[in-house]
Nucleic acid binder design. Structure first.
Lengths: 143, 143
DNA sequence: GTAGGAATTAGAATTATTCTAAATTGCCGC
DNA sequence: GCGGCAATTTAGAATAATTCTAATTCCTAC
């Protein structure tokens, strides 16, 4: 995986590029999300962030996540009504929810499929975004 | 719309066919969902049901909805983390969420598209179900 | 009709998230 | 480098959809 560099300077730059103040909290939250891309919930992110910043509050984690989502550095992933998860994969992609393990996998979406999906809409409907989630089971070791 | 008959006998039959006891509450909840197919939330269903059965409790509405979902007479529709909505359209279909009005429209999915979607999955992944939601705006009067 | 398990009920409990108001911090121009 | 001030953080309270609990009521098989 060609992971983006996650040092202080790089994180700070990414935040500034989005016109948000590069606070220590935002940097750590973003770092944690980039480091372990297992679609964590806010609570999980809170726990991971506390390792390096024990004084951070849950409200701040929520605030930071909102900011990161607003400026497009992170995507929200909602499955059913389970707690919202966060995903640093900004490419167009779908999600596969493994019902056996609870794991979520990213699934690449070819442009041609996206095009075909938009064509499914009746006249008068214009989609700005498409959410696609598969539910099933994966062979262990897949992906 | 070739609406299914919604009298007591018909509703009762549908419930019995699913091996669930045809209680008055279940019949009314199902009737309300079949009558106005605007993807109501549990609260909205509760309000509508109270018109003909003022003594029903919200917990019962939730219980009935769970039962109807279990036996496949009704589908749950979750958009983001908004309150769950309920849909009596059992055919394979996607949803279009009109961000301007909040309305949800059913969108038919050709078999060929479903097939293509399944092919998008990498080896080792098998989807049991697919959730597809469009988000955008519809010309007024569309659908 | 009656027994017994299933369904209903009101209200309390849960849980993810948002709100509030006060304290702190980053950043601009000097 | 420093003061001012808006943006951010914080702890805890508040919210809202849903689930749980335990008691009552209701179907259905006998």
């Amino acid at each position: 995986m060609p992971a983006t560099k996650q040092n202080h300077a790089a994180l700070s730059e990414r935040l500034k590029a989005c016109d948000v103040r590069p606070t220590a909290q935002r940097e750590v939250v973003l770092k944690v999300i980039l480091e372990k891309r297992d679609h964590p919930t806010a609570d999980e992110i809170f726990a991971r962030v506390k390792a390096s910043m024990p004084t951070i509050s849950l409200a701040t984690v929520y605030n930071c996540l909102d900011t990161l989502v607003q400026c497009g550095l992170v995507r929200q992933v909602n499955l059913e009504r389970a707690p919202t998860r966060y995903c640093p994969n900004l490419h167009q992609h779908a999600h596969f929810h493994d019902e056996a393990t609870g794991q979520i996998h990213d699934v690449d979406l070819p442009e041609e499929v996206m095009t075909r999906l938009h064509e499914v809409l009746p006249a008068g409907f214009a989609a700005r975004s498409i959410d696609l989630t598969f539910r099933g089971s994966a062979k262990t070791g897949a992906n």
